[in-house]
């Protein structure tokens, strides 16, 4: 699958000859078998009116509009509104629905991290991820290394993310094997009592909602995702 012999007839000068890349400079010519396959399948589906080009573009944009900012809003609300936090823990789907999010057909389960218990999420069988709340998963979440090692050596994995927890904290690896999607509510950083919900949301990183990291501390790095 990874043969490169399919580039034979293409001239791949990087700089010259690609005039039409100016409007979208990140686009490259397909070179891999699977990239050609994507084009072939897409064009056939469009020709047969099964999908439309517009529909595909809209779907791409819809996913690009979903990002960890969604999850961060939910966490910030849970941090500031105890009744909301209780509802989120009791019925994730209904509680995220209150803020305009839908997680269709799946059960959304929020897990709260505390001083005593730290959840981290993995899918050892595929790459289940709460996409409506966090967007498309990062590459590492889908990687062989993360999926294999996390259930066996969670603290070594956490360390690679710069996260070290005392042995008195139970690290609970949650393998998302079935119809549930998990959202971690990280611990609220100290000294954030006066912050607004919007300011708090900026402290909620994507990784803190997967559980490979904690939320950013006050004055620490801000969420840029």
């Amino acid at each position: 699958m990874s043969s490169h012999d399919n580039t034979q007839d293409h001239h791949h000068g990087d700089a010259a000859g690609h005039d039409h890349t100016t409007f979208q400079p990140d686009l490259k010519e397909p070179t891999e078998d699977w990239e050609f396959l994507e084009i072939a399948l897409r064009e056939l589906l469009i020709e047969k009116d099964i999908l439309s080009s517009r529909e595909i573009q809209d779907e791409i944009e819809a996913w690009e509009n979903k990002s960890p900012e969604g999850g961060a809003k939910i966490v910030a609300r849970a941090w500031t509104d105890d009744a909301y936090r209780q509802r989120l823990l009791a019925d994730g789907n209904a509680a995220v629905g209150e803020l305009g999010f839908t997680v269709e057909a799946l059960k959304l389960v929020a897990l709260e991290n505390t001083d005593k218990l730290h959840h981290m999420i993995v899918c050892t069988l595929c790459s289940c991820y709460p996409r409506p709340l966090l967007g498309v998963p990062p590459l590492w979440y889908k990687s062989r290394e993360y999926r294999s090692r996390t259930v066996r050596e969670p603290r070594a994995v956490l360390k690679e993310f710069g996260t070290e927890l005392p042995v008195t904290t139970e690290v609970r690896v949650v393998d998302s094997t079935a119809d549930c999607r998990y959202l971690v509510i990280p611990r609220r950083p100290n000294g954030t009592e006066g912050l607004s919900e919007t300011a708090l949301a900026e402290l909620v990183s994507r990784d803190s909602m997967i559980g490979t990291a904690e939320a950013f501390g006050l004055g620490g790095k801000r969420n840029t995702l």
Binding site: L45, E59, W140, R144, E160
Partner: peptide, 28 residues
């Protein structure tokens, strides 16, 4: 696809922007 507990090297935690091909596959 059942990888839990297998050994492996360090996790590459660098961020990656999906290419257009990848986004189209996802959308399809």
């Amino acid at each position: 696809s059942d990888l839990g507990g297998l050994t492996g090297g360090p996790i590459d935690i660098s961020e990656h922007q999906p290419t257009l091909s990848e986004r189209r596959i996802d959308a399809m």
